[in-house]
Simulated assay, not measured.
Amino acid sequence: MRLSRPARIVLGSVTAIVLTVVYVPLLVVFVNSFSTSTSLSWPPPGFTLEWWRKAFQSTGALNAVLTSVQVAIVATIIALVLGTLISLALQRFEFFGRDAVSLLVILPIALPGIITGIALNNFFRTMMGVPLSIWTVVIAHATFCVVTVFNNVIARLRRLGMNFEDASADLGAGLWTTFRLVTFPQLRSALFAGGLLAFALSFDEIIVTTFTAGSGVTTLPIFILDNMFRPNQAPIVSVIAVVLVLVSILPIYFAQRLAGSERSLK
């Protein structure tokens, strides 16, 4: 499709405005992480690396990073297992209520985080009588991380069809052998991309975490929220925010590169 020159100008202008609104605030946060000011002021009066040194020496920040990584890794593993099994069941088998199950699997990613947080908080504390801890955070994150894995895997299964699996069965291979030698190798890149996105989604989640974390559980986003308005903590929070953005970008970047390389091979 070819666009006229006025249409290209309008489309380019709108794109530039949207990108400016999205990324200029991030640039301000990045600059403030080097500012000599102890508050989030603009323009910065000077530049220093002191806040980066203090941030990487902060016990609270390092513990928060470790907690976020632990939660994200476990939630991603759970999502990979459940998302793969659900996608195989929904794509490879026909049963009553399949469309309803598919809707229920995808729904958590569409619900507002505050609704999910309140619902899980009531479920853990009121219905189950389970104290909030790092494990309730893991379970909460897994509920929406499953969706990213599910979407990637089921999309791949729809493109693959069942020809290779049927051929494997005709040659005498069992269900597990077929999955291990035929299905799984074709799903590896989809699982890798889904796992990366799930990790990024879990790592920077704050709303659901706020409702499901116990008093002793502090993830990196919660640490940022708690310290943002404390005296002399704003520049350190800016440093942590920059690190959080970089950590969130990397999985998405590699997932896109992986998807692009697959398209080029087709």
Rank of each mutant, 00 (worst) to 15 (best):
P108T: 14
V31I: 13
S37E: 14
A110I: 14
T59Y: 07
W51D: 02
A61M: 15
Q70W: 04
R53C: 00
R53L: 05
A119S: 14
L85T: 12
V81P: 05
A89K: 14
L82Y: 02
V14S: 11
I114W: 15
F56P: 07
A79H: 00
L85P: 07
T20E: 05
T67S: 08
Q91W: 02
L11I: 12
A89F: 08
N32S: 11
G46H: 04
S33G: 04
R53Y: 04
V105C: 00
P108M: 10
G113M: 05
V65D: 01
L62S: 15
L26T: 08
T116K: 14
I106V: 15
Q70C: 05
T48V: 02
L49H: 03
S13I: 00
T15P: 00
S58A: 08
V24N: 09
V74E: 02
I109W: 07
S87H: 03
G97F: 03
F30L: 13
A110W: 10
L11R: 13
V28I: 14
G12V: 00
Y23W: 12
S35A: 09
V69E: 09
A75Y: 08
L11P: 06
R92H: 00
V101R: 00
R98D: 00
V105I: 11
P108C: 10
V18E: 07
F34E: 09
L66C: 03
I118E: 01
I86F: 12
S35F: 01
G117N: 12
I114L: 15
L88M: 12
P108K: 14
V81L: 11
A16E: 10
N63D: 13
V81H: 03
